[in-house]
Write a protein that binds this DNA or RNA. Sequence first.
DNA 1: GAGCGTGTTAATGT
DNA 2: CACATTAACACGCT
Length: 277
Amino acid sequence: MPELPEVETVRRGLTQLVQGTSIKSIDVLYPKMINVDTKSFQDALTNQTIDRIDRRGKYLLFRFNNDMTLVSHLRMEGKYDVEPDGTEPSKHTHVIFHLDDNRELRYKDSRKFGRMYLIKNGEEKTLSGLGTIGPEPTEDDLTFNYMKQVMNKSRGKIKPFLLNQSHIAGLGNIYCDEVLWMSKIHPETITNTISDDKIETLRQNIIKEIKMAIKGHGTTVHSYSNAYGEAGQFQNHLHVYGKQGEPCERCGTLFKKIKVAQRGTTYCPNCQKKVAD
DNA sequence: GAGCGTGTTAATGT
DNA sequence: CACATTAACACGCT
């Protein structure tokens, strides 16, 4: 389940592998994955060069030299692979970009949940999701003033608040549970009851956690791998996610797993109390 | 072989 | 508008 650090790791790998190559032809094996019809997709990108690959939240943005951008969201199981020409496509291969150097860039997705959107540069705001995405979880973009302002007017629970990409870009279930544990905040705490001190703690933990996870090349829990087919390392640094029934490393209390907004949520019932502070 | 779980977003309801 | 709830996606797993 790629979240921001995994998508960033994929972006870096793809940049090394395919930046500067051009597209000879494209096979679309699963047209529903793309927001335009196959022919327009092929016409727009054939013979164009991949100038650069950007990222915003969990979205990858392939910038082409004809002012087109291919926006790609991996959702749960999406992956990119680069292989020599002519390799037999696996069952889960849905789009193949034949490159000008006898390699192929392939999009694979066992769930078929991922999506691609073809837009002109600058049209990012017209896409739902990407158009309303919140600030990146970095020191410069995610300011205390912003966090305070948006949290103080939110009357729902903190966990769904953090998962909402229009508030902060890039957090998913894993890092959400992690930063709440680090910040000693119960996942069902009402967002606008959280003190300024806790808001700042949470903010710093989000920034730190995302940075560390990128350093660790992301977290592999089910099947995530980067553009080189390599697993991430950060699963070895998780403190709560997936550890229900195991003792909290701070206090020894056994972690509990509950549902919050239909999402599996693991937390420490002792360290993470519902009261703000 | 039906039903469930899975993460994210869209759509709909209040 | 803010938030909750549900559906949809498509498949693997039980």
